[in-house]
């Protein structure tokens, strides 16, 4: 397949400002309630607790009272890879259950194709993928709040953040109906972006100079997680603290910045 127009197509991405993030957890729950994420009685084992968006606590490890802490929300990084469409997870999937959407840059997970080999989970360096070890159970009448926009996953499949792709589909439906082919910035926003009380998450088309994320990603505060791996993620973080940038990048000398897009 040849994608000649790759450069002009939207590349949806996220910029998360760690200076603003308060670690309140609203994004996590907004995501769970938007995407019919199952829950179980004991969620303390974080290896089998499904959280598409998860907040990590990062400390500078200095002794009291010099201790500093930041909170790092981690959705799927929607890696672009070294060539468009080559995130670490898609190339290993034997069932084509995870795919890269060239029209948006979103890495999808197609539940009905997944047969649960979990190869993608090992391939993902960000641990964003979760396996359904059990059938989902919705106690009492909680089945009533399930959204028809997102299918409920059964036991044996892998799931992860989709950048609320169903919201993109809804917005596109509306746009087509109105005779448009492009979306306005605010027409497609993820549930976490919408819920964040501090406004720490910005979402939009990284390629579109009119979108906020386009400007924010070039901020001197910007960095990406484990950039040295060359996964080329579409989730950017902002922090004014050097130790944060260093801890999240795990920088190793010259390797750092090797894969970073050139600033204008």
């Amino acid at each position: 397949m040849i994608h000649k127009e790759e450069g002009n197509l939207p590349r949806y991405g996220m910029v998360i400002d760690l200076d603003k993030c308060t670690g309140c957890g609203a994004c996590m729950v907004a995501c769970q309630s938007e995407n019919n994420v199952p829950f179980k009685e004991n969620e303390t084992n974080k290896l089998d607790s499904i959280t598409w968006m998860r907040i990590f606590k990062v400390s500078n490890g200095e002794p009291f009272p010099g201790t500093e802490m930041v909170y790092l929300p981690r959705p799927c990084q929607h890696c672009e890879g070294q060539h468009p469409g080559h995130p670490p997870c898609t190339s290993v999937c034997p069932a084509t259950a995870t795919d890269y959407d060239h029209a948006t840059g979103v890495v999808s997970q197609i539940y009905t194709r997944c047969f649960g080999c979990r190869y993608c989970m090992t391939a993902c360096p960000y641990l964003v993928r979760y396996f359904n070890w059990w059938d989902p159970h919705f106690p009492a009448d909680t089945e009533k709040y399930l959204s028809p926009d997102v299918s409920v996953r059964m036991r044996g499949v892998v799931e992860k953040c989709s950048f609320c792709f169903h919201r993109f589909q809804r917005a596109m439906d509306k746009a087509y109906y109105e005779g448009r082919k492009e979306l306005e910035e605010m027409e497609y926003q993820t549930a976490c972006t919408q819920a964040c009380p501090a406004g720490a998450i910005t979402f939009g088309d990284l390629n579109n100079p009119h979108h906020q994320v386009h400007k924010l990603k070039d901020s001197p505060r910007a960095f990406r997680l484990l950039e040295k791996l060359g996964t080329n993620p579409k989730v950017y973080y902002l922090s004014s603290k050097k130790w944060v940038r260093k801890a999240c990048d795990n920088e190793m000398g010259k390797e750092h910045n090797k894969y970073r897009p050139k600033r204008k």
């Binding site: 609203a26 309630s33 909680t142 089945e143 709040y145």
Partner: peptide, 20 residues
């Protein structure tokens, strides 16, 4: 008060509405 923002408790209110 909140101009579009919502906290995690408010966000999961439906688990109270329909919940066990």
């Amino acid at each position: 008060v909140n101009n579009g923002g919502v906290c995690l408790l408010g966000n999961s209110g439906l688990q109270y509405l329909y919940g066990p």
